[in-house]
């Protein structure tokens, strides 16, 4: 008896698996974004963007939350998402993996993006224009391993200024996972020094989420290009001629301050692939991209 149950289960499983077709309705634009801050609110942050795009583009638009930077790149490459809000590095990686894909828009602030080096007050480090060499021997946390402002650029500038690998400069190097967590960890003293996306820092300070008596900004990297919207080259074929231009126009035309605050940016402007060449060069020099 039990045995029959077992067999029936076996066969129904096989049948179900073979029938399990999971293809999306072909004309849904799926997009995602790197999980750079407050992961519990990703859906909230980007759900409304999907609605906005849907209205502008006239096709169904869906946001899927993704756990890591690399997973966004992979999904983009696998055509499971066609549009993504990438960081500088992940965008460069994605466009290398998907020939024909285009950076179409970036935040007003993105051409001149910065990383802030922040320190716990117990270190006694103060804000300066010069690179604070006193960070040597402290514990240090990056954000995500695949982050531009949280990892690539700070690592580049630290190694350039200290003349040594980060592993040798600091007593301990960690990866917090995202920018909000970096701030929290440096504030709690779990790490003495950290590198954080300047927009996230400013937003969280403004919202009163940061205890500035415990953690403060000590140095700001030179400007570099960072976040951008990148779209796959084959969307025109899939959604109709001129679709990527339509998406570009929709993004640049996004003026709702509430929606822009989700990024957080004051607006979007045009972008092109070559804007991010400096990132590519930096990634190559650090060895993240061969």
């Amino acid at each position: 008896m039990k045995f029959k149950v077992f067999l029936s289960v076996l066969f129904s499983t096989l049948i179900l698996f073979s029938n399990m077709s999971l293809s999306a309705s072909p004309n849904t634009l799926v997009f995602s974004a790197i999980p750079d801050q407050d992961e519990t609110r990703l859906k909230q942050r980007f759900g409304d963007i999907a609605k906005y795009l849907e209205k502008q583009l006239g096709v169904p638009v869906k946001y899927v939350p993704v756990k890591s930077y690399a997973a966004v790149v992979t999904a983009f490459r696998n055509n499971q998402i066609q549009l993504a809000w990438f960081g500088g590095l992940s965008g460069v990686q994605a466009r290398l993996k998907v020939p024909g894909s285009q950076a179409i828009a970036q935040g007003v602030e993105d051409p001149k993006f910065h990383t802030y080096i922040i320190a716990n007050h117990s270190t006694g480090l103060k804000a300066s224009d010069e690179f604070p060499k006193g960070v040597a021997g402290k514990t240090f946390t990056f954000g995500s391993k695949g982050s531009t402002s949280g990892r690539l650029m700070p690592q580049y500038y630290i190694e350039k200024n200290m003349g040594d690998k980060v592993d040798n400069v600091f007593k301990r190097v960690g990866f917090s996972g995202n920018h909000s967590k970096t701030i929290a960890l440096v504030q709690s003293g779990a790490y003495e020094v950290g590198a954080v996306n300047f927009k996230v820092w400013e937003k969280e300070v403004e919202e009163g989420k940061v205890d500035t008596s415990k953690v403060s900004l000590i140095w700001k990297t030179p400007a570099y290009p960072d976040y951008q919207w990148t779209i796959r080259g084959d969307v025109d074929k899939e959604f109709g001629e001129g679709f990527s231009n339509k998406v570009k126009a929709a993004l640049i035309g996004l003026k709702d301050p509430d929606l822009l605050g989700r990024f957080p940016r004051s607006g979007f402007i045009e972008a092109k692939n070559s804007d991010f060449d400096p990132i590519l060069e930096t990634a190559k020099s650090i060895g993240i991209i061969d």
Binding site: V5, V9, S12, L16, L22, S23, V64, N78, Q80
Partner: peptide, 26 residues
């Protein structure tokens, strides 16, 4: 329970299903 297992197994694919596609190219 043995009697419930087929129910679970039949329901499960519908729960895990999402819109993603797989392509042989990947």
């Amino acid at each position: 329970r043995p009697a419930l297992l087929p129910v679970y197994i039949i329901a499960a694919p519908f729960i895990v299903a999402n819109d993603s596609t797989i392509s042989f190219d990947n």
